[in-house]
């Protein structure tokens, strides 16, 4: 690209921010929700430190714990998705790499959410 254009001229016409505001606000709402969920998570894991398989399973089987864990996983994976995407958008210049990295982040976050939530449910509903 020639250097005759000003930085502003280079970005003009690349499109609007689209759903940028909504993503930005959602990211903050997820952050707020994460505060109590992280405190619950840390306090629980410290309290159960060193416990064996049976004790961890019994702990997760409590309805309140299952629900909070599912909410925590769902919330932090969404927060992580838009957070990682923001990092990629800021630091990756190449459009192709940026596109594939963004898709990879979405897939990875969905996989993490799917596997973890299924594990909690399997323990919660298991025999």
């Amino acid at each position: 690209m020639t250097g005759m254009k000003t930085p502003l001229a280079k970005v003009r016409g690349l499109g609007s921010g689209k759903t940028g505001t909504e993503t930005w606000v959602s990211h903050r709402v997820q952050a707020i929700a994460n505060i109590p969920l992280v405190i619950f998570f840390v306090v629980s894991f410290v309290g159960n430190a060193g416990k064996g398989h049976a004790e961890w399973v019994a702990w997760i089987k409590q309805p309140i714990v299952s629900v909070l864990l599912v909410l925590f996983i769902a919330n932090f994976t969404l927060h992580m998705r838009s957070g990682l995407q923001e990092v990629v958008e800021d630091y990756v210049r190449d459009h192709g790499t940026k596109f594939f990295a963004t898709i990879a982040i979405k897939f990875a976050c969905a996989l993490i959410a799917g596997l973890s939530i299924f594990s909690v449910l399997r323990i919660a509903f298991g025999g």
Binding site: V57, S119, G126
Partner: peptide
Amino acid sequence: HRATGSALAFGAVLLTWWMVALATGHEYFN
């Protein structure tokens, strides 16, 4: 803030591994 956020994504992978192990059974969990 960005560095720790990215590091926590790695932590999320480890948490998933741990959760899956817990759901799999005591042998793998150990």
